[in-house]
Amino acid sequence: MAKDSLDDYIDAASKLLRLPVKDAWKPAVRANLEVSMRLARMVDEFEFSDEAEPASVFTA
């Protein structure tokens, strides 16, 4: 996502959530989103085999 698109997203999301984001915070918020999107892309691109099944749920 381009820098201006991320800035636009930050502005829109902060308005939607009614969460004020000061201009001084925007570089840190942008950096966090860039890392989150890079990690999400890695998970999305991971190939699972056809035999893969979800992990069991264990309760105590």
Rank of each mutant, 00 (worst) to 15 (best):
M1H: 07
A2K: 07
A2I: 01
K3M: 05
K3Y: 06
D4L: 08
D4A: 13
D4C: 03
D4V: 06
S5C: 03
L6C: 07
D7K: 08
D7E: 15
D7V: 04
D7C: 08
D8T: 10
Y9V: 09
I10F: 06
A12D: 09
A12M: 09
A13K: 06
A13T: 05
A13N: 04
S14W: 00
S14M: 01
S14Y: 00
K15P: 00
L16S: 04
L16W: 00
L17F: 01
R18D: 05
L19N: 03
L19T: 00
L19R: 00
L19G: 00
P20N: 03
D23M: 02
D23Y: 03
D23H: 01
A24D: 11
A24V: 07
W25Y: 08
K26E: 03
V29Q: 02
V29M: 09
R30H: 14
R30A: 13
R30K: 15
A31F: 04
A31S: 15
N32W: 04
N32G: 13
N32Y: 06
N32F: 05
L33W: 04
L33S: 03
L33A: 06
L33Y: 09
L33V: 08
E34W: 07
E34G: 08
E34H: 01
E34P: 04
V35Q: 09
V35G: 08
V35R: 15
S36W: 11
S36G: 07
S36T: 01
S36K: 11
M37L: 15
M37E: 07
M37Y: 08
M37F: 12
M37H: 12
R38M: 04
R38I: 01
R38F: 02
L39V: 10
L39N: 10
A40S: 08
A40N: 11
A40V: 04
R41L: 12
R41Q: 12
R41F: 06
M42Y: 08
V43M: 14
V43L: 15
V43G: 07
D44C: 07
D44P: 02
D44G: 07
E45F: 05
E45K: 11
E45H: 11
F46E: 05
F46P: 00
E47W: 10
F48C: 05
S49L: 05
S49I: 02
S49T: 10
D50R: 12
D50A: 10
D50P: 00
E51G: 09
E51M: 13
A52F: 15
A52E: 12
A52Y: 11
E53A: 08
E53H: 12
E53Y: 10
P54K: 13
P54I: 14
P54Y: 14
A55E: 14
A55C: 02
S56R: 15
S56N: 13
S56H: 11
S56W: 14
V57P: 00
V57W: 10
V57C: 01
V57Q: 06
F58M: 10
F58C: 06
F58K: 08
T59I: 11
A60N: 05
A60T: 13
